[in-house]
Amino acid sequence: MRILLFAVLAVIPPSLIGTLVWQGRKTPPTEHAPAAARPSGQEADATLRALFEAPPAGVKLKEKVALYDEKGLFDYIDGAAPIFIDRHFRKLAASEMATPEGSDLVCDVYDMATPENAQAIFDKEKSTTAKFVDGWPEAIAGPMSFVFHHTRYYAKLTAFDAKAEAALPVVARSLKEKMR
């Protein structure tokens, strides 16, 4: 009788905790990328931030660069996040910039962990009518946007007027040179 009583009482706590925690939480996102291929967190974050340390040519930073991880990515791109996460996304650096004339543009650089992953998301997102940049087959210039991939990074630049749009190729090349 005592053994039974102890057994019942012993089973209650783990069962209760397990059930309640399970109710409010789902399985964390699966880790997709091979661990060996992924750069270490702190070092990779520092490299990502360094892309913006000296603002790209022809623009100035309007705000501090914001970093988003897998979980936070939904708060920045909402339902587009799983497409990146499925392709081994590691971290995003998002920055709003302005030209000297005050025209705004947004620069999002995704660290995709490996060059293959960066190419994969580039291929996924490119429009069927995409216009590749002359002499730069990893870049697409669309109206009001400029998208490219280089090393493990995938960059999306968005302009909000014609002056900012004209600055996009310069900013893109400046970023590319810093991507190692």
């Binding site: 997102e125 009001m144 968005t158």
Partner: peptide
């Protein structure tokens, strides 16, 4: 038509 919900490029 594509790259939603964020979009950005007028091509989409």
């Amino acid at each position: 038509l594509a790259n939603g919900p964020t979009g950005g490029s007028l091509a989409d």
